[in-house]
Computed example of a mutant assay.
Amino acid sequence: MFKPIRFIPDDTKIKFMLLSRYGYFASGVACLAAILLFVFVGLNYGVDFKGGTVFVIRTEQVANLDELRGKINGLGFGDAELQEFGTGGHEVLIRLPAIEGGEDVQRVVQDKVKQVLGAGVEYLSIDVVGPKVSGELAQQSIMAVLIAIIGILIYIWFRFEWQFAIATVMSLLHDVLLTVGFFCLIGIDFNLQIIAAILTIVGYSLNDTVVVFDRIREYLRKYKQLPLADLIDVSINSVLPRTLLTAVTTLLALIALYIFGGEVLKGFTLAMIWGIFVATYSSIFSAASLLALLGVNRDAIQIQPSGSKAAAARP
């Protein structure tokens, strides 16, 4: 019989609450830097939010995205976004950023693109995304993130208690803010794919946080006299193997996707890779330490029915 490999010991005794004071400082500095980057540098908004011209084309041969991108970028109209559209590799979606000058300039852009792509290309559609449409997309994207966070607040409030809900939402806002600051820093196009990545990061971070909180609530019933800070340390240590192994396996898949997934997916996967680091950090240091600051009503925890143990919380 082979013994299972333990990359992380089951009996770790890391003093997370003692380290959390440094975590507060690091998170505060990082959040402040993210806000300053957003205010003074800003996001590099993509076509989805700035407007521009969108082509859908069909090629006779299987499309070579790198070759097409090189031809279009050579026109000097800005960085083009290309992705395969449909199946078979013959249909391509091309996004070009908006250029000032009205309809006449947009018509020139379209003519130049057609000229550089040459014969053998069928244009299935050509659409101009105006500032009004892109503005609506930006508003809807912000609303999607806010609605998700508000829904999480309500769910955690009913699932646990208000202290758990506040700690969870503050941790999620921390993750979103650091992700936005990261994209301000690196300057990659911020588009709807990144919004999708942020919502995915919120879900991942929530899952990690709920696992920790479920174990804390379980131990609040089990160790009634243990000080809250020590109980949180025991809880985090007990789920640490599960948390880190989940993060590592997810990162392996994302790194492979970043390397082999093509240019179109690089922004999404980069956001997810950064988000996994941030979400893992926040679930260990931010959420639980905020709960320690807010305190919990042990009497309310004790009178709740035990129910079934959270299987997902076991390492």
Rank of each mutant, 00 (worst) to 15 (best):
Q163S: 14
L206D: 01
L270N: 07
F268Y: 14
A279G: 15
L244Q: 14
M170N: 05
G267A: 11
A167Q: 00
Y258R: 13
I273T: 11
V278Y: 12
S283C: 08
Q225W: 09
L257K: 06
L265I: 15
T200I: 05
F213W: 01
F268C: 10
I232D: 08
L252Y: 09
P241C: 14
D175R: 03
F268H: 08
V202E: 06
T168F: 02
F158A: 06
T243N: 15
L252M: 15
A271I: 06
I232S: 03
I216V: 10
E218Y: 02
I186E: 07
G262K: 07
L177T: 09
T209A: 05
V234T: 13
V264L: 14
I201W: 11
W274L: 09
Y155K: 04
V234C: 10
T243Q: 11
T250K: 13
L240G: 09
F182S: 06
G261H: 13
L244N: 11
D189Q: 09
I236N: 07
C184N: 00
F213P: 00
T249D: 14
G187Q: 10
D175M: 06
A197Y: 00
T269A: 14
A197N: 05
I166M: 07
H174G: 01
T280E: 09
L270T: 15
R215D: 08
G267W: 03
D214G: 11
V211M: 04
S286A: 15
L265W: 06
I236V: 15
F160P: 00
F285T: 14
S283R: 06
I259Q: 10
T250E: 07
L206Y: 03
L254N: 05
I284M: 09
E263D: 13
W274P: 04
L270R: 10
L240C: 12
